[in-house]
């Protein structure tokens, strides 16, 4: 039963990717042929176009930047939430749920009007800021969990032995938190890289990301190009994620448990 289930799951996950690959290289696939009638590299060639490559690279740049900044913002925030008492801590928890539980369309329309007023609409800055707002709850939650399980006792020992607060943190706690930092950055990258509607609204079509190249093909029904771009999309996301994962595994044996994300 378990084996059958596993095979079914593997098929449900891997078959779609195989289908993408097949569609990406088909030239003619008329109804009702179960397999493509002839193959072509036109889809792959479209991907190698200089504009497309440029968009892919800048898109990876925006997403990595947003993810890194989110982790950097989340690190002190998670520490404050884990180890300090302050007024408004409970309200903070509720507000941090907002980007996940507020209907995203309402959230994005609100941001669009605000960013228009702030003059950062249609700019890369605005897009990255919006992406950070969507990503942020994930690193904060994960790092809170992690900090609570690492605790502060070892850091306090370093302090009694004469280390400055900053040194105690960077030499004792930080190495223990680093794997979690890398894995939430990877997750943040995936979240940002997959955004379409948010980037369209805040970037106004002026800030191009890879997701925005894919959707017009899907809408116009060009399956070969949709598939080629979708495949490249997964490949790019997987490569960046895989590199981070490999770094993580090289430097620490175990992978920290992270929650998945929906977006």
């Amino acid at each position: 039963m378990r084996r059958v289930m596993l095979w079914l799951c593997a098929a449900a996950v891997l078959l779609p990717v195989a289908l993408l690959a097949l569609y990406a290289v088909c030239a003619r696939w008329p109804w009702p042929a179960p397999l493509p009638q002839s193959l072509s590299l036109r889809g792959i060639q479209a991907l190698l176009n200089a504009d497309v490559r440029g968009t892919l690279l800048s898109s990876i740049g925006y997403s990595l930047g947003s993810a890194l900044l989110s982790t950097l913002i989340a690190l002190p925030a998670a520490r404050a939430i884990s180890f300090y008492n302050f007024a408004g801590k409970r309200a903070m928890r509720a507000v941090l749920l907002a980007p996940i539980l507020l209907p995203s369309t309402a959230f994005f329309i609100g941001l669009q009007t605000l960013f228009t007023r702030l003059g950062i609409i249609n700019t890369a800055l605005g897009v990255m800021l919006a992406h950070i707002m969507v990503i942020l709850p994930y690193p904060i939650w994960t790092l809170c969990d992690m900090m609570q399980s690492v605790g502060r006792t070892m850091e306090e020992q370093a302090r009694t032995l004469g280390a400055s607060p900053l040194r105690a943190f960077s030499a004792v706690s930080m190495p223990l938190l680093l794997p979690a930092c890398v894995s939430v950055t990877a997750l943040g990258f995936l979240i940002s890289f997959g955004q379409y509607f948010l980037t369209l609204m805040i970037g106004g079509g002026r800030v191009k990301t890879f997701a925005m190249l894919v959707v017009p093909y899907i809408q116009s029904g060009d399956r070969m190009l949709s598939a080629a771009f979708s495949f490249a999309f997964i490949l790019a996301a997987g490569t960046v994620y895989g590199v981070m994962d490999a770094v993580l595994r090289k430097h620490s044996g175990a992978r920290p448990p992270t929650r998945g994300s929906l977006v």
Binding site: L6, C9, A10, V13, L14, P16, V17, L19, L20, Y23, W31, P32, A33, P34, L190, F193, G194, Q195, Y196, A211, V214, V215, I218, R223, S226, A227, S230, F233, I234, A237, G238, Y241, G260, S261, V263
Partner: peptide, 30 residues
């Protein structure tokens, strides 16, 4: 194995997959 790939797949790619599989000229129809 089960949850890594779908979580990494953005919604727009999943939308395309659904079209390729379930539409009236999709793989299931064939």
């Amino acid at each position: 194995l089960v949850y890594r790939l779908p979580i990494a797949m953005p919604h727009i790619v999943v939308a395309f997959l659904v079209i390729a599989l379930l539409s009236q000229t999709g793989l299931l129809a064939r």
